[in-house]
Amino acid sequence: MKHWRDGCPDNAHPLYREKRCTLKATPFEPRILAFLCNWCSYAGADLAGVSRLQYPHNIRVIRVMCSGSVSPHHLLRAFRKGADGVLVAGCHIGDCHYLKGNYMTLKRVRFMEEMLRFAGFDPARLRLEWISAAEGIRFAEVVREFTATVKGLGPMPSFDAVPRAFAMG
């Protein structure tokens, strides 16, 4: 299987991956995966597009029916597969089309962030936003802001377990 990020082999050694990154002359361009809920945020992103608002192209969008259907599995898999940041966006609290779906998202993402922090990943790489269908401007703004943050953080550290000697050295 090919890595969707610059064709790195899937489980390349972390050193190897780093080398490739540093050897590249081009500045670091983060890859950001966004989970947008069908009823609000996706429509918001649509509005941003229709209104011809400019926002960075670093974002890849996955449309989900409700932000509550994004499980920690998906978030971690995205990071593992080389996403440098993950954005989860849903309807405002109280506006979820499945009534309380985004309650779950909120609890889950908060929890995930703390766990990421504890495992040594920067929790700022995971972002939760409420974006309604009318907030195209806000969507563009969030993407702009988030891309800048992730750019500042640099590439996502590896998830691959490393031998102790290597980790200590």
């Binding site: 504890f118 495992a119 040594g120 920067d122 550290p157 590896s158 377990a161 490393v162 031998p163 102790r164």
Partner: peptide, 21 residues
């Protein structure tokens, strides 16, 4: 102890331990 470690050393610490799984 763990909570007082920096983000980088925590990351290394965990990966070094998880390596044995």
């Amino acid at each position: 102890e763990l909570e007082q470690m920096t983000m980088e050393s925590l990351h290394e610490w965990w990966l070094a331990h998880l390596n044995r799984c």
